[in-house]
């Protein structure tokens, strides 16, 4: 008897909770955004997305947004993805795990909802699309694949007699590994030697970096790695002390003390996928929209002048002219 009473109480509580969930009866287009975690690059992408929609005439009289951010918790990510997929007309996943969760949720719930993604490096590898040119499903978006080749080319420009390039990234970040592999390819193409080292988290950054330097890395390349980006200040302190230039994957890493980057502008990336959302709202089929990426001109060459003075190196004038200059924040 007590057992049954308890179940009844639970059900009643549930129903009460329900009277508070509003039913959205209006005709506005519901856009769901699932962002993997709070992070300046991901935030910028989101803002770019919303700006693009507003610029195309889809302001708050026409659309409502539903944001969810599981802050990396896997179980919550799944629940939030399902909720968004049911409630919304179109969804955007920012970062690979969010995008995958949305795609799977859409398939499991059997809805036909278009799923957009951004800040995903390799959409094919993540099984989001069949190929970048022909997504062939309900999923498409923009990739933040870095102009790794251009970034590595910078290395040779900075140091003419360069022999060894170090690569540092966090082992649990798939995106980083993809970029690292690309970097290795480029480094070998340039006829140089590479030294690859990985960290598992925060605690082994210092020692691994020092080992990389003592093994002879003359320039170090760090891709768009979330863990290292967060800890960029301590990374740069060590590198700058040993006078080793760091080529970074993204702009905020340069602002924290890295030397230079050919960075992906996440706001622009977000705007691009926002434009795709507009196309879809106006009738386009996601399978016809190839995965977008930024061209070299759309990438920012950013250099940190404070770091230049600390390192005491000379920067070729072509780079200095083109680059946006920042100082350490």
């Amino acid at each position: 008897m007590k057992f049954i009473k308890k179940i009844v109480v639970c059900m009643l509580l549930l129903c009460c909770a329900f009277t508070f969930t509003a039913c959205n009866k209006d005709d506005k287009i519901k856009i769901g955004i699932l962002q993997s975690a709070t992070h300046s690059a991901l935030d910028a992408a989101r803002e770019g997305f919303m700006k693009a929609l507003e610029d195309a005439g889809y302001d708050d009289t026409k659309v409502t947004y539903d944001f969810e951010n599981p802050e990396g918790n896997p179980a919550n990510m799944q629940l939030m993805a399902k909720t968004l997929v049911r409630k919304c007309d179109i969804v955007l996943g920012i970062a690979t795990d969010a995008a995958v969760a949305l795609k799977v949720a859409a398939e499991t719930e059997g809805t036909n909802i278009p799923v957009l993604f951004t800040a995903v490096t390799d959409a094919v590898d993540a099984s989001l699309v069949e190929s970048n040119e022909h997504p062939n499903g309900r999923v498409t978006g923009t990739s933040d694949i870095n102009p790794v080749a251009d970034q590595i080319a910078l290395a040779k420009q900075l140091k003419q007699d360069l022999k060894k390039v170090g690569i540092l990234y966090t082992i649990s970040e798939t995106n980083s590994k993809v970029q690292a592999d690309m970097a290795i390819e480029e480094i070998e193409k340039e006829g140089l030697e590479y030294l690859e080292r990985t960290v598992t988290g925060v605690t082994d950054i210092q020692q691994t970096l020092k080992k990389l330097i003592s093994d002879g890395a003359e320039i170090i390349y760090i891709p768009t790695d979330n863990n290292l980006a967060k800890n960029m200040v301590s990374v740069c302190n060590i590198a700058n002390e040993s006078k080793i230039p760091v080529i970074c994957g993204k702009e905020n890493m340069v602002k924290a003390g890295g030397l230079i980057t050919f960075g992906v502008n996440y706001t622009k990336l977000g705007e691009m996928v926002g434009a795709m959302a507009v196309q879809i709202i106006e009738g386009a089929d996601p399978k016809d929209l190839p995965v977008g990426r930024l061209s070299q001109d759309e990438c920012n060459l950013v250099i940190n002048t404070s770091t230049v003075s600390i390192l005491g190196i000379e920067i070729p004038s072509e780079i200095m002219e083109k680059a946006t200059k920042v100082t350490t924040e």
């Binding site: 909770a17 969810e68 802050e71 939030m80």
Partner: peptide
């Protein structure tokens, strides 16, 4: 099941994730 029921309600109530 109960645990996820509670979380599900919270998410659907529009609770911000950092408050979860």
């Amino acid at each position: 099941v109960l645990y996820y029921l509670i979380i599900g309600i919270a998410i659907n109530l529009g609770l911000d994730s950092y408050l979860l």
